[in-house]
Simulated scan of single mutants.
Amino acid sequence: MALQEVILVDELDNEIGREEKLKAHLDGVLHRAFSVFILNDKGELLLQQRASGKYHSPGLWTNTCCSHPSPGEELQASAQKRLQEEMGFTCPLIWLFKFKYKIAFDNNLTEHELDHVFVGRYNQDPTPNPEEVESWAWVNLDSLKTDLEENPEKYTYWFRYVYDTFYNTYCLQEN
């Protein structure tokens, strides 16, 4: 299996190089990522519970899918491809915003990402890849906001970090 590379970026999201994914997370260098949020017509967000075999944040709940674009791959196309790989479907995606975060994990890995957020609509149940996804659920946005506040340990760091921005940027404008 070929090693996956990530795109190293500066603070303005300009590509400055490439690095093997695990090494980038060991060194904590800033790299490009994306997060996908899928809503249905009931206003529910599709969450996934990360598989227990993931190298960080196993078993935690998070947005519909997330990953890193491959060097030379268009960002939105990469997000749609990963949505298919993780959740078993694809749909049109709209770019919303980007944010930067950094978190060190207990296993000596550091997520330092400039993360592009995409949103899409889908009204069927997913057929997730069990190597990536332990479980999934459609969740009411307001109930989720409350649960994130009351039980933050159930969710990934980046999801807790970005949820309010996502909610205020997209969800409130839609209603």
Rank of each mutant, 00 (worst) to 15 (best):
N123Y: 07
T62F: 05
K81N: 10
N14Q: 11
V139M: 12
K154R: 13
D164T: 08
L83N: 01
Y155H: 04
E11C: 09
D115E: 15
L3P: 02
T169Q: 09
C66T: 12
W158H: 08
A137M: 07
N107Q: 05
V6W: 01
F105D: 07
K98R: 07
T146Q: 14
V117K: 01
P92H: 05
A104D: 14
P126Y: 12
Y161N: 04
D27N: 15
D164A: 10
E86P: 06
L96R: 04
L172E: 13
N129Y: 11
N168E: 11
L45S: 02
N151K: 10
A33L: 03
E19R: 12
A51I: 04
K154Y: 07
R18D: 05
T169P: 00
S143I: 10
E74I: 06
E20S: 01
K102E: 14
W158I: 03
I16S: 03
A137Q: 15
H68R: 02
L93Y: 06
Y155E: 07
T110L: 09
E111R: 02
K100H: 05
W61G: 01
G28Y: 06
V133H: 01
E85P: 00
S57D: 15
G28V: 11
H68W: 04
Q84F: 13
Q48E: 08
Y157P: 01
Y101A: 05
N108P: 00
W136M: 09
E19D: 08
R32N: 06
Y155L: 05
S35F: 03
H31P: 10
A137W: 07
T110G: 14
N175A: 10
G28Q: 06
E73F: 11
P71N: 06
S135G: 00
S57T: 05
E131S: 06
C65P: 04
C65H: 10
K21E: 13
R32H: 10
L60Q: 09
